[in-house]
């Protein structure tokens, strides 16, 4: 009987060992591992008829891709004027580290001749970056469903493509819904902490309900953005509950984790730090 806790711990150790580069770690932060994505991958492969050796190999490769993408996500934009050598060096190494982790995923799969998996993961990376630019450039998203689809593509394409290859539609749904919900949590936290959130920015760009016929005051507009966002959050929560029911079985620990995320949504929705 497989034990998720031990497996996850072992997988984390294997991934960290693989991604270890002493010089990089001296200057950039240790790559963070998204444990929920790791758990979802574990759940997917646990439902499949693959050997533990292969399962580990696929999960490690997929997580290396995720680490590579996450590492590039924190590459800063150039600041105005002269930047300190430390800032420059950190940025340079962030770029190269991401490329290095990306090379490692390819090297791992190439060493065992798994061309199918190379095709699946590269196709997912393509889709993720295409959608990242769509979200980042904002102008091309005009409605909420498109926004949520874009975020889902960014967060879940790696697992979605794998689950699709193995014809596991229930795992596609739970992964997309849960990872969307998690991202919405992160966006709301960031908005509440610093006022910055790309999802809020996109929502703000969408047409407003202007029943008065005149100019909507900025504070009212922001209220509408928040209302819209919280609706997305609640809808995403319901989607997770629906997709959970479609899975034949869910490991107890994975189930606990999903429940914890759902409870978090409950406390997050409609709560905003009062301004002023």
């Amino acid at each position: 009987m497989l034990n998720i806790t031990d497996d996850i711990r072992q997988l984390k150790r294997l991934i960290e060992t693989k991604a270890q580069h002493p010089y990089l770690l001296k200057y950039i932060q240790k790559p963070s591992l998204d444990e929920d994505k790791l758990m979802l991958l574990w759940g997917l492969f646990n439902d499949l008829d693959v050997t533990s050796e292969k399962r580990n190999q696929y999960i490690i490769s997929t997580m290396l891709v995720q680490i590579a993408l996450d590492t590039h996500e924190i590459v800063s934009n150039s600041g105005e004027g002269i930047e300190s050598p430390e800032v420059l060096k950190n940025r340079q190494l962030q770029v190269l580290a991401g490329d290095y982790y990306s090379g490692l995923y390819y090297q791992g799969l190439a060493s065992v001749g798994n061309v199918d998996m190379i095709r699946i993961l590269s196709s997912a990376i393509k889709k993720i970056n295409d959608n990242k630019i769509i979200l980042y450039q904002q102008g091309s998203i005009h409605d909420v469903p498109t926004l949520l689809m874009t975020v889902k593509a960014i967060e879940a394409s790696l697992i979605q493509k794998l689950a699709d290859y193995y014809n596991e539609p229930a795992w596609i749904e739970i992964s997309e819904d849960l990872l969307l919900l998690k991202r919405l949590h992160a966006e709301k936290s960031s908005y509440m902490k610093s006022g910055e959130s790309i999802v809020f920015d996109v929502l703000r760009e969408m047409p407003f309900d202007d029943s008065t016929g005149g100019d909507v005051p900025i504070s009212d507009k922001e209220e509408q953005v928040r209302t819209r966002f919280d609706k997305c959050l609640r809808d995403a929560r319901q989607s997770v509950e629906r997709s959970m029911r479609k899975l034949a079985k869910l490991d107890d620990e994975l189930l606990e984790r999903v429940k914890a995320i759902l409870e978090q949504t409950e406390s997050m929705a409609n709560s905003y730090v009062k301004e002023g």
Binding site: L69, N77, D116, S122, S123, N129, Y136
Partner: peptide
């Protein structure tokens, strides 16, 4: 900006490997 450059580079790398997967 740097962000667009990072996404573009990653996209092109991915396309490269997808194309190579024909072999």
């Amino acid at each position: 900006d740097n962000r667009v450059a990072m996404y573009t580079g990653d996209f092109i790398f991915a396309r490269a490997l997808e194309m190579m997967a024909v072999i």
